[in-house]
Design a protein around this nucleic acid. Structure first.
Lengths: 245, 245
DNA sequence: GATAATAAATGTAATTTATACATTAATTTT
DNA sequence: AAAATTAATGTATAAATTACATTTATTATC
């Protein structure tokens, strides 16, 4: 994946189609690196590109930023068009500004990563847009510099997840400790000790234990928890240093 | 400086008092948040703005990104024009994309923070451009969203300095441990214990003790050290986790 | 209804890291 | 020779991290 030879052939196919490249004008776009979590695996939402050049190739979803629109608004707009969801966690990754990064346009793209809760409702909407949830370590080649965006976003997710409760954005509202552990194992890409993980996770005092159990993955069942955002906000207000594994 | 890459008609109408705001076109700019360190204090390099609107106000230095230029190249270009220095440490902070952030243009700016070694040579060049090194906790109001950029950059510096040897970019090549401590105290904005700091700093094994002493700040003099980038690179290659205070 | 199977839940000891703290050393100035 | 000044150093205590094995709750099967 992500080979030079592939980029080259992408470029050729663009040339063959005589696509007009208006390089006399600056564009600003935003591309969304959309993460999800399902079946113990971290996933990325990718799309079949619908326009030339590179039509039909896998791509992140994005849009040009409109003249009267904030960059962050544009990203929210794109996300809502695709998933139907508002108020999704999203944060700037970085901007991608190489002069030749897009053969079609002189376009600076602001990468934004989003964390969403995969569920059947989203999936349906997503399918309408020719999208697919790929396993993070089984991604196809993406157009332009989109693979690099994913690499950078993963790196950032790894760094931030430790000190900010990002993980909970990816889990359903109610989750078990083993599920939480699986998530962090997927993000950090390493195995964690179950006893130590549980200890650490609970030591932050921001997980509320519920009476219900989830029995989908064991006979005994595991207690469900939810993240207590109010307490979390209060804690960090007073200087608390959240950390998980 | 900021308007060098504009066409003349825009420039003229912008320059007189009821300036025309060409919001029919997207611009991309880059602004540099330039940090230095001198006399135990963290400093920021700011400039008198030379064009309307807001002519004469303090501002970060920046430029529009040219059509055939990488965003990062543009930032290096600006920095070189001002300081005469190449290969300065610089890294993307984030992009600033609010639709109304600049009353003159629809302009997305990529903030980049730079760390430079203040010395007399730089200062001379800098003065030519109507610039001034301000103490970081005694900054004037800056134009547009530039104060926010500084706040964000400081926050990022605080976070990154701990796990990446950024600090050495701000110090002269040879420095003493007390100087290094002063720097970290300025970045973290808190006092550090001299014994513990020294222990921690030296524990990373990337400081080379020289035979020379610096006697500018004590009768006894303090030994000079330099940062051993080769060893540092080797260590992080093999998974070492650099940390300072 | 007893047994087997399975993942969840729990505790402790050893090691490492972080913190708090006071004295002596080297040098110059008077 | 004495005074002044900053640099340099060590240790004991507390806190955090790591490594590691058994029991528990429940369902499925015989």
């Amino acid at each position: 994946m992500y080979l030079n030879s592939l980029n080259q052939s992408n470029f050729m196919s663009y040339e063959n189609k005589d696509f007009y490249a208006p390089q006399d004008k600056m564009y600003v776009a935003t591309d969304c690196i959309i993460f999800g979590f399902e079946d113990g695996r971290l996933k990325l939402l990718v799309f079949k590109r619908r326009v030339e050049p590179l039509m039909g190739e896998w791509s992140l979803i994005g849009s040009f930023v409109k003249l009267n629109e904030d960059v962050d608004e544009a990203a929210q707009r794109v996300l809502e068009e695709i998933t139907g969801l508002k108020n999704i966690f999203m944060e700037q990754l970085k901007s991608y500004g190489a002069a030749n990064r897009d053969p079609g346009y002189r376009c600076v793209s602001i990468g934004q990563y989003a964390l969403i809760r995969i569920n059947d409702y989203d999936k349906e909407l997503v399918e309408k847009h020719g999208a697919h949830w790929y396993d993070i370590d089984d991604l196809p080649d993406l157009v332009l510099d989109h693979n690099q965006m994913v690499i950078d976003a993963l790196e950032k997710l790894k760094l931030k997840a430790r000190y900010q409760p990002l993980g909970f954005e990816l889990l359903p509202e109610k989750f078990t400790i083993p599920q939480l552990q699986q998530l962090y194992e997927a993000i950090y890409q390493k195995q964690l000790d179950a006893r130590n993980f549980r200890k650490k996770a609970l030591s932050n005092k921001v997980l509320i234990k519920l009476e219900e159990k989830d029995k989908t993955s064991s006979r005994r069942g595991a207690f469900l928890y939810k993240f207590d955002d109010k307490t979390y906000q209060r804690l960090i207000q007073s200087g608390y240093n959240f950390e998980i594994s």
